[in-house]
């Protein structure tokens, strides 16, 4: 096993992908607990589609992908949050509209400029080759910021997740924390989507939270377990992908799905007793 990892890490692109991926998995899992409980998990899905549109445009214009995608997706996050909370179009329908439009824009722009090619495929389903070393630096810095902000605001995030009206009544600025979560989610998604792919990145947000909730009964434990599960699953997924040449993003999702099933069964057994 050790020799497999030695071989795996002898490729510098693998080192980069694992570094960025682990950092992103951790952030996504922490944010995911709050998003899933607030019934906002589809926002993650919507944002990744917007990210795809932004990346395609950046690619077509020969601009640095992260510098375009991060601001665009952050703006989209604020917008999606707003319409999920108060609008005449229902939140899930609005997310559907925005996601499909963003995908359509991305595909059209790419086919007009470079033609539908391997790039599109790697945006859709992820690629471990996508990371440059400057991407790694940006990703690690942003992940650390996400993690620290999350830690500092942990109690307030708990309060707003559990009971928005009580939190508001006791003077927590609920809007600010909702925005903060949306903002951090947007950054996390953009960072992760090039490894995991547009179609698969939202699994990093949803799976670890749901998996942990099968077994654990306190918010803190669910958080800690989500973080650990997410990073472990990512690592195992990458190893599997390296060993059997399976697509990286898909392998990570499959490992997550397997762990989810395992935890569901354990949860059922515990509750039966």
């Amino acid at each position: 096993m050790v020799s497999i990892w030695q071989e795996m890490f002898s490729y510098s692109f693998m080192v980069r992908a694992v570094l960025v991926g682990s950092a992103v998995s951790l952030c996504a899992a922490l944010l995911g607990v709050s998003l899933v409980l607030k019934r906002y998990s589809m926002i993650g899905d919507g944002l990744s589609h917007v990210g795809f549109g932004a990346l395609s445009i950046a690619m077509a214009m020969n601009l640095a992908p992260l510098k375009i995608a991060v601001p665009v997706v952050v703006i989209a996050a604020f917008f999606l949050l707003r319409i999920s909370q108060n609008s005449k179009i229902k939140g899930d329908a609005a997310i559907g509209l925005i996601s499909s439009s963003a995908i359509a824009i991305g595909v059209t722009v790419t086919s007009l400029t470079s033609g539908l090619n391997a790039d599109i495929n790697s945006y859709m389903f992820g690629s471990v080759l996508a990371m440059t070393s400057s991407d790694v630096k940006i990703s690690i810095v942003l992940s650390v910021i996400v993690f620290l902000l999350f830690l500092i605001c942990y109690d307030r995030i708990f309060a707003t997740t559990f009971d928005e009206s009580f939190a508001k009544a006791t003077g927590v600025n609920v809007e600010v924390y909702n925005m903060l979560i949306a903002f951090l989610t947007a950054i996390t998604i953009v960072l992760g989507m090039r490894i995991m792919g547009t179609m698969l990145i939202s699994s990093l947000i949803i799976f670890p939270a749901l998996t942990s909730m099968r077994i654990f009964n306190s918010f803190k434990r669910v958080m800690i377990s989500s973080g650990i599960i997410s990073v472990v699953c990512f690592f195992v997924g990458m190893t599997v992908s390296f060993l059997y040449s399976t697509p990286a993003g898909a392998s990570v999702v499959l490992v997550n799905a397997a762990v989810f099933l395992l935890f569901s069964i354990i949860g059922l057994v515990i509750r039966r007793r």
Binding site: L37, A159, T161, D163, F166, M213, F216, N217, S218, F219
Partner: peptide, 18 residues
Amino acid sequence: VQRDFPASVYEVVLSGCL
């Protein structure tokens, strides 16, 4: 949201001190 919320009683009560 609260009906299936994984939080311990202590965590919920403590959040009142915020």
